[in-house]
Every structure is written in structure tokens, then in C-alpha cells.
């Protein structure tokens, strides 16, 4: 994805250029591009007068940031305790099998990114999976197939 410096500047202006707005600005950039392009981080460093290494540190410290391009659909599996005791590990294995990637990876066609998160706070419904911001509670293997098939099919239709 082409990084539009003007867009980055606009985001920065909107938040403010003091260092305290670094994380919010990066989150906004991440929301725009789905990841943090290096050029954008460079721009942030220049405009905010924050050394590049510090921007890089922040980007790699917080799990919300990704410095790699991510897939079109983000599948997040909750690995919180409540989900764990209800079989979150099996869930993530199953999801991984269906879309053919491991947690933290993005499929080669950039359709799916599989991520794990420590707790989504929907513990009562564990195990929980979120696809593109939509929550799916009380998951099990057969439900995984159903839910993910929907996203894959949508893809197929869009292309077919």
C-alpha cells in the first residue's frame, strides 16, 4: 500500500505533535493501513521529534501494532483464562487448520491474519473468536468451520 505522507501528517495534526500523542497517532495510522508502514513511522519520528528507535520500540512493545501488512480479515482468538479452560487452545488449532496459518501469521494471499489476544472480556462466552470486530462466542470445532466458511465464501463470491 502506498503511504500518503499527507495522510500521515493529517493524522498527526489531528492528535497533536507532543510525544504523549505517539501511541494514539500510531493506533490511528494502524487503523488506516491495517499495519504500521515503515515510511509512516519515519514520518511520525520526524514530525514528533521523537527518535526513530523510540517509535520502533513503542511499535514493537504493544501488541496492537503490527509492522507487517496484515490480512483483509483479522481473526482473533481469545486465549484468556476462561477461554483456556473451555478449550481455547483447541479452538486456535482448529482455526489455524482451516485457514492454514499459525497464530501471528498472515496467509500468503493476505486474506486472513490469525492473532491471539489475552482476554477480550467476554469470558462468560468462552471460547471466543472475533472476526473483523464481530464476536463469536461459545465456539467449537464445527462452528469454526461454519463461521470461517462464511468469510471465505464472501471472498470467493467477490472474486467469482
Amino acid at each position: 500500500m502506498e503511504v500518503d505522507i499527507k495522510k500521515i501528517d493529517a493524522i498527526l495534526e489531528e492528535h497533536g505533535l507532543e510525544k504523549r500523542w505517539l501511541i494514539p497517532s500510531l493506533l490511528a495510522i494502524q487503523n488506516t493501513y491495517n499495519y504500521l508502514p515503515p515510511e509512516a513511522m519515519q514520518r511520525v519520528s520526524e514530525r514528533m521529534q521523537v527518535p526513530m528507535i523510540q517509535v520502533y520500540q513503542v511499535a514493537s512493545f504493544y501488541k496492537a501494532f503490527s509492522m507487517e501488512p496484515r490480512g483483509k480479515h483479522i481473526v482473533t482468538v481469545c486465549m484468556g483464562t476462561a477461554c483456556h479452560v473451555r478449550g481455547a487452545e483447541r479452538l486456535v488449532d482448529q482455526v489455524g487448520r482451516v485457514i492454514g496459518i499459525k497464530p501471528g501469521e498472515t496467509s500468503t494471499d493476505y486474506q486472513f491474519t490469525l492473532e491471539t489476544v489475552n482476554c477480550l472480556g467476554t469470558c462468560a462466552l468462552g471460547p471466543v473468536m472475533v472476526v473483523d470486530g464481530k464476536y463469536y462466542g461459545n465456539m467449537n470445532a464445527s462452528k469454526v468451520d461454519r463461521v470461517l466458511n462464511r468469510y471465505m465464501k464472501r471472498e470467493g463470491e467477490a472474486h467469482g
Partner: peptide
């Protein structure tokens, strides 16, 4: 110089 950092968790 601010070039080095301990990066990641």
C-alpha cells in the same frame, strides 16, 4: 544519539 533500544517484550 538515541540510536539503540531494547526492543520488544
Amino acid at each position: 544519539q538515541h540510536l539503540l533500544g531494547l526492543v520488544g517484550r
